[in-house]
């Protein structure tokens, strides 16, 4: 109904409403603007977050909600003794610790490579970016075939170089590294593109001036390129790190968390405990802990970046 009244008002340039009415109307409009988003955020983000915290102190079982009891810190105590949980925590940490630096460096190296004026460079940019266009589920299915020890491409190719055969996903010591390799392969192109945008923002004259001063390529990289993309570097590190802590699709599709829980992650446990074992209480405790970890990472990184950029 609003637009109609507006139109009539436009025909009449002199507002007939008093300032007070107008103010109230403004207030109404501004709340009206914000309200849909705020209500949705409350119902589907804040409320579930509060409920997660609440459930983590109960023994909520998915099929018998009426029997739910308050159990204080029972679920959290159980976390401390749960070897599977500690293992998942370790697996997640391993993934993060390797993927974040390696993927960032690979992406930076790729960006430097394709940031040159060469014939056909666009093709190479697209090539490195291609895996990003293929979504994670699809990539995971594809690589499960590639990693098949007896009927897979990976062993055939490595055989040419005289390596292998490897067991990849069926070996507890190789499964996580196989997932790490694939994840970097899939994601590096995405960050390469962001780096590339940053590199292209660095003015050419800076490099020219350095060349006149006799700087070599390495010195230019350290003194011009890196400082020029520092903000982007920080951004990428945060985004990659937080995304890495959420590792789920790859182990879900490729290994179901195995073999021997070697690819079970925190988020995988949240899913498995909650939906397969229906233990909402315990699952919520893991979820809350996961949230706290993400929170700490973000705070630390923000602090670190602030110190470094000021």
């Amino acid at each position: 109904m609003e637009p109609v009244t507006q139109k009539t008002k436009l025909n009449n340039p002199l507002p007939t409403v008093s300032p007070k009415q107008r103010k109230r109307k403004n207030l109404f409009t501004s709340y009206g603007f914000a309200a849909p988003a705020m209500i949705l955020l409350f119902v589907f983000l804040i409320l579930p977050a509060i409920l997660a915290l609440y459930y983590s102190f109960t023994n909520y079982y998915l099929l018998t909600p009426e029997k739910t009891k308050f159990v204080a810190f029972e679920n959290y105590k159980r976390l401390a003794e749960d070897t599977l949980f500690l293992k998942s925590l370790g697996n997640t940490a391993l993934f993060v610790v390797i993927v974040v630096p390696v993927q960032t460096l690979v992406a930076l190296a790729l960006a430097l490579l394709v940031n040159q004026k060469l014939m056909g460079i666009k093709f190479f940019r697209m090539a490195f970016f291609a895996p990003v266009v293929t979504s994670m589920v699809i990539v995971s299915i594809l690589w499960t075939f590639i990693y098949n020890p007896d009927n897979g491409l990976a062993n055939s190719i490595l055989n040419i170089v005289g390596l292998g055969p490897f067991q990849f996903l069926t070996d507890k010591d190789q499964a996580m590294y196989s997932i790490i390799f694939m994840s970097i392969w899939q994601g590096a192109g995405y960050q390469m593109m962001i780096f590339l945008a940053g590199l292209q923002d660095i003015p050419d004259h800076q490099y020219e001036a350095a060349s006149i001063d006799g700087a070599n390529a390495w010195q230019k990289l350290i003194h011009i390129t890196i400082p020029g993309i520092r903000n982007i570097l920080a951004f990428i590190a945060i985004v990659t790190m937080i995304a890495a802590t959420k590792l789920f699709i790859q182990p879900f599709v490729m290994t179901q968390g195995g073999p021997l829980d070697s690819t079970k992650t925190l988020v995988y446990m949240v899913y498995e405990t909650g939906f397969k074992f229906r233990d909402v209480g315990y699952s919520s405790a893991i979820a809350i802990l996961f949230f706290v970890i993400v929170l700490i990472i973000s705070i630390l990184q923000r602090k670190f970046i602030k110190e470094n950029t000021e």
């Binding site: 119902v43 589907f44 983000l45 409320l47 579930p48 977050a49 409920l51 997660a52 459930y55 937080i242 802590t245 959420k246 789920f248 988020v267 949240v270 899913y271 909650g274 939906f275 909402v280 699952s283 919520s284 979820a287 809350i288 996961f290 949230f291 993400v294 929170l295 973000s298």
Partner: peptide
Amino acid sequence: IIIPFESILLPLYLI
């Protein structure tokens, strides 16, 4: 922005 979706999965499902 910081709340990871994965941590509200179950309560959201129940809602």
